[in-house]
Simulated scan of single mutants.
Amino acid sequence: MEPFVKQAKEDGPVLFTIASWMEQYCELTVGFTSRHGGVSQSPYATLNSGLHVNDVPEHVVRNRELIAEAVGQPFEAFTYAEQVHGNEVTIVSLQEKGMGRASRETAIQAKDGFITNEKGIVLCAQFADCVPLFFYDPVKRVAGLAHAGWKGTVLNISMATISLMTHTFGSQATDIRAAIGPSIRACCYEVDETVANRVNHVLMDINASSEERQAVMVDKGNGKYMLNLQELNRKLLLQAGILSSHIEVSQLCTSCSTDLFFSHRKEGGSTGRMIAWIGLL
């Protein structure tokens, strides 16, 4: 069953929430935006949340405000970073609450992962094909979010996020719930030998079997490969100690579904950004 459930109100942003998490944990808001329900014009139509893609800044901020209204949390709670496709993870406290919501200059700089145990903070990360990773420890009440493109994935940002949750707040990996959100899937994600070699090193490091390797990457010949970033991230989550029964994986492909989502690959780089969000109420 698809864990990300479409939520649409009349004349508002179309959102996808992890409904099972929000039903089980009433203290949590968590989900992923679509491309619909905002004010941006083509090619960013309409719910672009990225300030770095040459959209009109006032439109982007308005879209972010609309998302906050639809989520039902104050705009001042939404906290953004300048992402760099790395594996640096930071703790977000009340001091950082709301950073980056209205400008890039005020965003948390050079981070791709975030954790918090503070109520009233909504962590946000931006996507247009890369893999959103959501984390929640219901025992210690710690939320986390990570941006995993192929670079962040091979740098194991999932392990970095879990380690910070463990060392900072005492989380146990077996308690943590994880979700892999809508992103470009193996049906659409062709990569070259440079990327494939990095992925192969990771697969060797985790002692993946030949069947497991085949599930992650398929050789098309001529130096081209079809890469399943979701499955690679799932394996890395398992390697980090997350229970298989605690991992949700979306089947929604951003490249296949440009009627719902922005796709950097499918739309030739000229497109908007969705956000993933998670916050403690």
Rank of each mutant, 00 (worst) to 15 (best):
N222E: 15
A70K: 05
L164M: 10
S245V: 08
N63P: 04
L145Y: 02
E88G: 06
G221F: 09
V89C: 08
F75T: 00
C26G: 14
I157V: 10
F16I: 03
E211G: 04
E211Q: 02
L232W: 08
C130P: 07
E10H: 06
V92S: 05
Q172M: 14
A148L: 05
F75D: 01
S34F: 15
D205E: 15
K9P: 00
Y225V: 01
E193V: 01
K6R: 13
F32K: 01
A125V: 09
P13A: 06
I67D: 04
K224L: 05
C124R: 00
D175N: 04
A148R: 03
E105K: 11
V84F: 14
R177K: 07
L155T: 11
C188M: 15
F32W: 12
A178F: 03
M217V: 14
T161L: 04
Y225N: 00
G279R: 10
K224P: 01
C256V: 02
M165I: 07
L280P: 06
T166Y: 06
D175H: 05
I91L: 07
T33R: 06
E190W: 02
L236W: 10
E88R: 05
Q214G: 09
L28Q: 12
P57R: 04
I115Y: 09
T168G: 07
F4G: 01
H85T: 07
I275P: 09
A276W: 07
S210Y: 11
K151A: 15
R104C: 15
D175S: 03
D192Q: 00
Q41A: 14
S40W: 11
S270Q: 09
S244M: 08
G149M: 06
W277A: 11
N197T: 12
I67A: 01
K151Y: 15
G152V: 00
G221M: 08
S103T: 11
L15P: 01
A8D: 06
A148I: 00
Q7V: 13
L47D: 13
F127P: 00
G12H: 11
E2G: 12
T29E: 12
F261D: 02
R213G: 13
I121R: 03
P74C: 00
T258P: 03
F169C: 01
K9Y: 12
S171D: 00
T166E: 11
S210V: 14
L237W: 03
Y44W: 14
A173S: 05
L238H: 01
I176D: 11
F135S: 01
T33E: 00
E248F: 15
L133C: 07
R101M: 09
E76A: 03
T116M: 10
S183H: 06
L237Y: 05
Q214M: 06
A178G: 04
Q214C: 12
V71Q: 00
S40F: 08
A173Y: 14
K119T: 14
V92F: 15
E96K: 08
L237S: 02
F114C: 03
G120L: 05
